[in-house]
Amino acid sequence: MKREENKLNVLLRRFVDEAAAEAMSQDIQKGDALLKRFADPVLSDKAKDLIRARFEAVCSARRRARRLMFGVAGVAAAAVALFVVLFIGNNLGPSPVSSPNRDIALPHTDERLPLPIQPERQPVAATSDEIFTEDLKAVARYLWDDGSNADSGDFFTVIREELDNIAAAIEADRMESESVAPERFIHGASSEDAQQRARSLITADFWKG
């Protein structure tokens, strides 16, 4: 009590002079003593029980509300997850616009079936282009192996002869391919045939100089 009195004096001296602080302190202590003389109103046990009951009702209502909230939140989360899964399944696959052939059956889509048997490849007769390429390779090999004639005029003679031979071979090939088939007498030559013939003539003229 004495300690509290001293504390109050110290506090009061921050605002008023020492004498005033002393007087105020005494007034406050007398006032406190007066208040202590009166008994406090007492809360009846019945009222206390009512407070407890209300208090418990509020607490349990809150617990119920929290459980309900978590339940609703859980159901909502599950619904959202389900929606997302369905949405991805329906919308993020190949669309008919981006892959118009999605309904066309692909060959051998069933892995359980045996692979289809492929026919063996048969040797194909060499075409005129392949013959020409082979001839050029032969000339090149000849010139390469026989480098002694490189400085003489015979070297170019040899080349010319070989090229003439190739041109003759091409011409013979062309003549053979242009030989008129019997049906062309009926239908006439197509524009494609005419273009091919013109190309062959130009090639032959070139080689003949």
Binding site: L12, I28, G31, D32
Partner: peptide
Amino acid sequence: GTTLSKVHRGLKKLR
């Protein structure tokens, strides 16, 4: 200071 003053005056009046 304001609180001290109010309490002091109030208690004095009550007394």
